[in-house]
């Protein structure tokens, strides 16, 4: 499985994840309307179901992603790999084993699949500080580290904001440092250190 192509989004999973609660909600509501008089406690059921759907979409997404990340860590441990560095991004978790030159990744939109592959498959890794503007308008809204595996570009944010921050701001500096650290360890793993 080390040569398997990375797939960031599992469309079947996403479709089931999004549609399943909606289908249950519609089916139950329809049944209630059709087979009951729709009064009393029964009338509250669709509201509760809707709240359940929202909770599933918000919490279920995080929970499935966390399970995927835990499974990745467990699989790497079972294979005798060293987890030198783990970065928990919002959209993916990246694990680097600089000792054995291996990497692991799991995506939030494809949490059922854990990818473990040689870091030599990374053709390029770099820090994107997102700098734009000049003078007093110079700043960034996003800092990330990016790496390309078999032509597929991966971007993991170390800082994101909906407003622009000065490049010298401590939060930005920390984001750059995190990204630089990840790039350095990915390159070390790639070089087989």
């Amino acid at each position: 499985m080390e040569n398997e192509k990375l797939k960031k989004v599992d469309f079947v999973y996403m479709l089931v994840f999004i549609l399943a609660p909606a289908v249950v909600f519609v089916a139950v509501t329809f049944a209630l309307v059709k087979f009951t008089d729709g009064t009393g406690a029964v009338a509250m059921l669709p509201v509760l179901l809707l709240a359940g759907c929202v909770a599933w979409w918000v919490l279920g997404y995080k929970s499935m992603f966390k399970k995927g990340a835990d499974k990745l860590a467990k699989t790497m441990d079972e294979r005798g790999l060293t987890r030198n560095m783990t970065f928990n991004g919002k959209g993916s978790v990246v694990v680097v084993d600089a000792v054995h030159g291996m990497m692991g990744i799991v995506y939030a939109a494809n949490p059922r699949k854990q990818y473990i592959f040689p870091a030599s498959r990374v053709s390029k890794a770099w820090t994107d500080d997102g700098k734009s503007g000049s003078g007093v308008l110079e700043g960034t809204m996003r800092v990330s580290f990016r790496f390309v595996v078999d032509g597929i570009e991966n971007r993991v944010d170390t800082f994101v904001s909906n407003s622009k921050w000065k490049m010298t701001d401590p939060k930005i500096l920390e984001g750059i440092s995190k990204a630089d650290t990840m790039v350095e360890i990915i390159n070390a793993a790639k070089a087989g250190k």
């Binding site: 401590p170 500096l173 920390e174 750059i176 440092s177 630089d180």
Partner: peptide, 10 residues
């Protein structure tokens, strides 16, 4: 402090 390239985060 955290050294970040030419800067520092104190």
């Amino acid at each position: 402090f955290l050294p970040v390239r030419d800067a520092e985060k104190p």
